[in-house]
Amino acid sequence: MTESKEFEPNIVGFLCNWCSYAGADLAGISRIKYPSNIKIIRVMCSGRVEPSHILKAFKEGADGILVSG
């Protein structure tokens, strides 16, 4: 990334299949536009997300993490 460009965060979303992931699907069905920075990882329960998942995502270059469920 060159200095002239504005900082764009890289966000990882851990989303519960039964609610938030379905919510993200609904955003799609409703054609609600949002920035492409977030990459969604589907989990079967947000309680399944361990601290190590979050730390690993940061280590691999994520700037922000969203856990939603």
Partner: peptide
């Protein structure tokens, strides 16, 4: 890789949508 509901339908810019699709496929 959900490149419709989570990508093509929600992203304004074509270039960004293509790059996001690549990221989702890679994962």
């Amino acid at each position: 890789a959900n490149i419709r509901e989570h990508c093509s339908w929600v992203t304004e810019d074509e270039g960004e949508a293509t790059e996001k699709s690549k990221a989702l496929v890679s994962s």
